[in-house]
């Protein structure tokens, strides 16, 4: 049994990468592997926004990430710099900058620095990027 670190650099909608990551994590855990963490970087940070509204007959990946994070208690870490560049803000970001009226990143997604990615890579047997 292996432990995986997952890096998601694909956006939620415009490519299949993020959904593939979700499927991989789900399959890995259900077959007895562990996922030490999921790190969202580059356009992947857009997965962290809960300001996503899809039509009722379409895949709601944001909701799936949320239940996956809660169900398996996997840290869903979002790079703060990459996120802020793309309009993804945590409650703390909003507290620190009065220009913003609201935040769109909340648990199980958490805002972290790139150092967490290094830690995650070092802890896992394998790192897989989607």
């Amino acid at each position: 049994m292996a432990s995986f670190s997952i890096v998601v650099t694909s956006p939620p909608l415009d490519s299949q990468g993020a959904y593939s990551a979700y499927r991989f994590i789900d399959a890995a855990i259900k077959t007895g592997h562990t996922v030490s963490g999921v790190f969202f970087y580059q356009a992947g940070v857009l997965n962290g926004s809960f300001f996503q509204s899809v039509l009722s007959d379409e895949l709601d990946l944001a909701k799936k990430w949320q239940s996956l994070g809660e169900q398996f208690e996997i840290p869903l870490q979002v790079c703060v710099t990459a996120a802020n560049r793309r309009g993804i803000l945590s409650s703390e970001d909003v507290r620190e900058n009065k220009d913003f009226a609201d935040f769109n990143l909340k648990p199980p997604f958490i805002s972290v620095g790139l150092g967490e990615l290094i830690t995650q890579i070092n802890q896992a047997d394998r790192t897989i990027q989607f």
Binding site: Y41, Q42, A43, A82, R85, G113, L114, G115, L117, I118
Partner: peptide, 15 residues
């Protein structure tokens, strides 16, 4: 944004 964010990662990793 790939070049910039690659460099961000490399500098963080070297730290």
């Amino acid at each position: 944004q790939s070049g910039q964010e690659s460099l961000d990662f490399v500098l963080a990793a070297s730290n």
